[in-house]
Amino acid sequence: MVRVSRLAERGAGRLPGVVVALTLVFLYTPVLVIGYLSLSPAGQPTIPIDGLSLRWYTAVLTDSRFVRALFTSLGIGIVTAFGGTMLGLAGAYAIVRSPLTRTVRRSIAVVIALPLFVPTVVVAFGIGRASALVGFGYGYLPVVLGHLFWVLPFTTFLIAARYGELDDRLSAAARDLGADNRTVFVTVTVPLLWPALMASVLFAFALSFNEFLITFFLAGSGVTTVPLEIFGKVRIGATAFLNAASVLVIVVSAVAAGVASTLRRPV
């Protein structure tokens, strides 16, 4: 009896649950398919694959172009992850906690959010032209700056969400106990923001590691990242090499995501 009324009260039938199930199938089928195909021994896999082999992983990891691109991507990703998080922390402070006026803080938030609502292709093209005009040209520096710009709204709002929840009276308590502003920041603010800062580092890394369009416009001929390398090969055709490379790229990002999901809130 109770059970019946409870079900009736829930309403909307099974539709939402079915959609969730279908979505999970939709989201994970391609990943599983590409993982399966990457084990094919043939250069042009057929479905089903005729045997199991890791030879294409060996091929990818001994391919100097791919390995160079991988290290470039990792390097740019790490710089972007930490730089973007520090800038994001500064931005979050400015938006959430600084004594600047409400209007100023709102304007800062809008400017930081710019990459979200301006089409990436426009931003990327604009940065490319501006970079050429001021003499930065193309290469590592514009790419890193472009990535920092691209991850900034994500890191800022990720950290700001946690910063906003942080009890302002904790820093008042610390000051009351003799801490100066720097000490309050080091002993209270940073430890309490720590999970958000770590999540920000990881997510910024993933965003940068996977970024394609901005890099495409700013890299010039000297810099090749993994997404550029893969995109170039995709246009030529689907191959077993590409499948193994794809799986490796997914693994790197999934590791970052996995670490992030283990972060616990301390409070």
């Binding site: 009890d167 009276r169 904790l170 008042a172 308590a173 610390a174 000051r175 009351d176 106990l177 003799g178 801490a179 100066d180 209270v188 430890p191 309490l192 301390p266 409070v267």
Partner: peptide, 20 residues
Amino acid sequence: RPARERETNTVFQDLVLFPH
């Protein structure tokens, strides 16, 4: 003098113990 240089200490409403 700011709070940190004063010989006063406060027990806050809701205590605000450092959770970490």
